[in-house]
Computed example of a mutant assay.
Amino acid sequence: MTTLSEYEKDILQQPDALRDQLNYPLPAELHQLDLHRYDRIVLAGMGSSDYALIPIERALIARGLPVWRIDAGRLLDMPDLITANTLLWMTSQSGMSGEVVKLLDIITKPLTLISVTNDITSTLAQRADILVELRSGDEATVSAKSYLNTLVASYRILAALTGEAEQPLTDKVAAHLNNIAERVSQQAQIQPIVTPFFLRTQPRLAMIGIGADAATAMTGALITKESSKVSAEGFIGGEFRHGPMETSGKQMTALLFGNGSEPTLIQLAEDLQRNGTHVVTVGPRAYAGSELLETPDDELLRLVCAMLFVQHLTVALARGNGMVPGEFLYGKKITVTL
């Protein structure tokens, strides 16, 4: 019998972690902010904490607001983006990432700092004007439950900031927790992806997402590298055609994330299948008749459930690669080195 790694144990704990996030009351101050009083809104984080903000960036831009989503490393290179009239929404699961801590040391304090973190004793938490807790509990290695909690917390914050009722959102996720728990224990669905992957002489893995689902593609590629030591690349929409398309073909598996209706990914799925690429859609409907790992249609539930498939894939890839899933070889859970 295979012994579960710490990463796999974290994956199994995700329904309980989500429940803790849903039961956590958001700070009342979020409802009192007027987004139009700021000259800009800057969303910042590192790695999956940055990618989880892609749907938020899109939603705020759709409301006509001046929004920058930028990873904390790039923001550290151009801190003048933060003005005295900025709303800075910074996410860090640890609250102690090197770039985040350094950035907080050098920037002139923005008008308002919303800090989203799992550690209320961290530097990010201590500097907050408004602190939002992830409530994902301890996490041993690669981000799993902390990422899902970041997604749900971010959508809750968005609702509060834009004056929408939060209850329908939390009720929707709560009603789906049993289904999420079932999906957490269903690893077999990804085996048809993993088996042919390791039969190739030069296997390649691409994850391509569009719209809000770009968050899954980018985070998925990141945690695949971390947890399985298999090289994977993440792309947003049409990026893949601009160079990476030349790496596709019979040696590649391409996972497409979206709702199944976007013309960009429909055409891409057709072209990839034509050149022999193994194409798998992760979403409610398949792109161009490709294989389907089915998720709910609702945007947030789709992002949550798609990530569960990705997590199972990373575990299976790690096992196939002779690695302990989620075990770090060179890094640590909290990256403090700049």
Rank of each mutant, 00 (worst) to 15 (best):
M245H: 13
A221G: 10
T247E: 11
T201N: 10
R204S: 02
I223W: 03
L268S: 06
I208L: 12
A181I: 03
G211R: 05
N275R: 13
V282Y: 05
G211D: 09
F198A: 00
S231W: 05
F197H: 03
G238S: 14
G209W: 03
T216Y: 02
M245Y: 13
T247H: 02
E233L: 12
T277F: 05
M207V: 00
A269E: 13
T224G: 03
R285E: 15
V230A: 00
A174V: 00
T281P: 07
D213I: 13
Q186R: 12
M218R: 09
E270H: 13
F240Q: 01
M207H: 00
L222E: 02
I236R: 14
T219M: 00
A214N: 10
G283A: 07
P196T: 11
R183K: 10
A212I: 07
Q189D: 12
I193N: 03
T195F: 15
P284I: 04
E246K: 12
A214R: 09
G258Y: 05
H278D: 10
Q189K: 13
R204D: 10
H242S: 06
N178R: 11
L177E: 06
S231K: 06
T216P: 00
T253L: 03
V279M: 04
I180A: 02
K225L: 08
G243L: 11
Q202K: 10
S185A: 12
S231G: 04
R274M: 08
Q267W: 15
P284A: 14
I180T: 09
G249Y: 01
L177Q: 06
F197D: 00
A175K: 07
L265M: 14
D171K: 15
I210A: 06
A175R: 04
E246S: 14
S248R: 02
L222D: 06
G209P: 06
L255M: 11
G237T: 01
T253G: 00
E182M: 01
P192N: 11
I236Q: 13
T216R: 01
T281I: 04
F257Y: 09
I193S: 00
N178K: 14
T216K: 01
F240S: 01
L268W: 04
R285F: 11
S228F: 02
S290G: 13
I236M: 15
D213K: 08
L177R: 09
R285Y: 08
A232M: 04
A214C: 13
A188G: 14
R241V: 07
I223N: 01
G243C: 13
D271P: 00
L205I: 08
G289W: 14
A188W: 11
